[in-house]
Amino acid sequence: MVTLEVWYDQEPENDFGPGDPPILIRTEAELNDFIDRVLDETKDHEAPAMIQAVNADDPRSAVLQVGLGQTKGFIGYGAADGGWTHGEGDPDERVEYIYMGNVSEVRASVEVSIDGVRQGLVEFLGTGRKPSVIP
Rank of each mutant, 00 (worst) to 15 (best):
M1D: 01
V2H: 03
L4Q: 01
L4N: 00
V6N: 01
Y8M: 05
D9T: 04
Q10L: 12
E13T: 08
E13L: 12
D15G: 06
P18A: 15
P21H: 10
P22T: 08
P22F: 05
P22N: 10
I23N: 08
L24A: 11
I25P: 00
I25M: 01
T27N: 09
E28L: 00
E28V: 09
E30P: 05
E30C: 06
L31H: 03
D33V: 04
F34D: 02
D36M: 13
R37E: 11
V38P: 04
L39W: 09
L39M: 14
L39Y: 10
D44Q: 13
A47M: 00
P48E: 07
M50G: 04
A53G: 00
V54P: 03
N55L: 08
A56K: 15
R60C: 03
R60H: 09
L64D: 02
V66Q: 01
G67C: 14
G67D: 04
L68G: 04
G69P: 07
G69A: 11
G69F: 09
K72D: 14
K72R: 13
F74W: 06
I75A: 02
G82Y: 01
G83Q: 11
W84E: 13
T85A: 11
T85E: 10
H86Y: 12
H86N: 13
D92W: 11
V95G: 07
V95N: 09
V95S: 12
E96V: 08
Y97A: 02
Y97C: 11
Y97Q: 07
Y97G: 05
I98C: 02
M100P: 00
M100S: 04
G101I: 02
N102E: 10
N102Y: 04
V103M: 03
S104N: 08
S104I: 05
E105Y: 03
V106N: 03
A108W: 04
A108N: 09
A108V: 05
A108L: 03
V110L: 10
V110S: 13
E111N: 13
V112Q: 15
V112M: 15
S113C: 01
I114A: 14
R118N: 08
V122H: 08
E123L: 08
G128E: 03
P131V: 03
P131F: 02
P131N: 07
S132I: 03
P135V: 06
